[in-house]
Design a protein around this nucleic acid. Sequence first.
DNA 1: CACGAAAATGGAAATGATTATCATTTCCAA
DNA 2: TTGGAAATGATAATCATTTCCATTTTCGTG
Lengths: 121, 121
Amino acid sequence: MNKSDLKMISVLERTGGFASAQELHQILRREGDGIGLTTVYRALQSLVDDKIVDLLRRDDGEAIYRLCGDGHHHHLVCKGCGQTVEIEGGAIENWATAKAKEFGFREVAHTAEIFGLCSKC
Amino acid sequence: MNKSDLKMISVLERTGGFASAQELHQILRREGDGIGLTTVYRALQSLVDDKIVDLLRRDDGEAIYRLCGDGHHHHLVCKGCGQTVEIEGGAIENWATAKAKEFGFREVAHTAEIFGLCSKC
DNA sequence: CACGAAAATGGAAATGATTATCATTTCCAA
DNA sequence: TTGGAAATGATAATCATTTCCATTTTCGTG
């Protein structure tokens, strides 16, 4: 956990929703921070490894990052403003486990995200 | 639906699991087909638009395609051999709908995939 | 069959995100 | 202060995907 990591956490806190590496870099630059794009990618990768931020993908495949709370959870993402809500997925966990067992799969992981328009958009 | 579209459907049928555009292109080339990469992308895009194939993303963001049956469904994907199984997601549908309503989201869609190792791998 | 328009095709260049390189700078303990 | 490790960032390399554009194929009509 170095200076850049903390800087990224700070921007992510301020932006709230998901943002791409490029966007986060631009924001920092606008604020006068001379941080390099390389460092942004490095810091984000490091935070993902430490499970401090979540990484998921936009429709076009671009990676987007979000500061996340502890433990396993899923997201409700607004297509309009990018605002996201962390949600519990009790039903999902059971479903994934059951299906995996049904087909004899081991070491399973799963992804589940919901996209839509929030009440403001 | 043109010749290239049919050709892509044919390869996808033979490969079974998910494959990327680049992989599908290589397979066709190996078989002696001189189809261009551009055409592969175009055909896949067209099939996705017509909801004949599913598009999802590998961990690194690369797009992978799979011939899919009718209707809404999810996948159980083997990390080892790429073999996939289409599964029903009754529990997921309800979960997604309920959560969306709970937070006042409209026009919702959702993704849910399970990754693991199949019995052979 | 011949002709021309429209669709399809594919090679090459452009794009854009992400990663690798590498020289320079910052940190920090001894 | 100093030596080395870690961090940094500009630049170049990579790689999937798109865009461009010229050529070829398809196909309906005379």
